[in-house]
Amino acid sequence: MDLSWMAWTWQTAVFFASIALLLVAMTIWEVLSPGGGPRRGVLGLETTRGDRLFISLLGSAFINLAWLGLVGPSLWWALGLSLLYAIAVFRWV
């Protein structure tokens, strides 16, 4: 199958592979402990761990965009910030 029209780069491949791995990990977590661990966090709404992953990823996208727009092109700090944000989301949301 010729995928050259999709214009793959190894960087975007790594990005999508990480997302895929996250989804696989979430599936394994769900198999090990079904139900999604619903709870009511600081936002006052019931979230499962799938919701928390979504909030983490969407928030990380905006953290990275804000970094690009306001600070500069090196995104390693933004990535670190996103990880902290994701940990906070999984802990408290």
Binding site: A7, W8, T9, Q11, T12, F15, F16
Partner: peptide, 11 residues
């Protein structure tokens, strides 16, 4: 995914 690939490249 293709759009994401395009977004980091020049063509």
């Amino acid at each position: 995914m293709t759009v994401v690939n395009y977004s980091v490249q020049e063509s």
